[in-house]
Design a protein around this nucleic acid. Structure first.
Length: 160
DNA sequence: CACAAGATTGACT
DNA sequence: GTCAATCTTGTGT
């Protein structure tokens, strides 16, 4: 589960869909070619946030998982808002599809490029694991990319 | 300096 | 189902 406390409002989302992205060996990754100003956080230490603008309109958020200098990150593709629903609805401008998609998820949480490069737990964003159950997940190919789309690096929670 | 493409979404036919 | 919106990066003139 991920929670954000931004603009005085707290929103929590239970993640149920994520995708992994690598670095030099992953043609679909932003860090495949080189280190740029935008993807600099991907090369940072684990737990760093990497937020990028998609199609000039949407924000998509990642968590860095690899060691410093090793660009590896997990893209948050979807989830369910479990707290702060009113705030999420206000940010989304709609009562449904609050976090069903990478751009929607980031918008519901109030995450923008301003949060890129910040560390988990050191400020606005923190992540928690539900100790009660070990989630079972399905592994499927990644979605919405044209390069290396066959790599089974997408993880979807089964049941809940 | 001028393009084209992309880890997307929302509106319209 | 189709298409536009709009920013960052990479590539070519």
């Amino acid at each position: 589960m991920i929670s954000t406390a931004i603009d005085g409002e707290t929103v929590s989302v239970r993640l149920n869909e994520v995708e992994a992205y690598g670095g030099r060996d992953d043609p679909a990754s932003h860090a495949f070619r080189s280190r740029t100003q935008r993807n600099r956080p991907m090369f940072g230490p684990p737990g760093m946030l990497y937020v990028y603008r998609s199609y000039g309109i949407h924000w998509c958020m990642n968590f860095v998982t690899g060691a410093e200098g090793e660009p590896q990150a997990v893209l948050l593709r979807g989830g369910e808002v479990v707290a702060g629903v009113g705030t999420a609805v206000q940010r989304r401008g709609r009562p449904d599809h609050l976090a069903d998609g990478p751009g929607r998820l980031a918008q519901a949480l109030g995450v923008t490029g301003a949060a890129s490069g910040s560390m988990l737990g050191e400020g606005l964003v923190r992540i928690e694991r539900l100790a009660a159950s070990v989630p079972t997940h399905e592994v499927t190919p990644r979605i919405g990319i044209s390069a290396a789309a066959d790599r089974p690096w997408r993880f979807v929670l089964r049941n809940g």
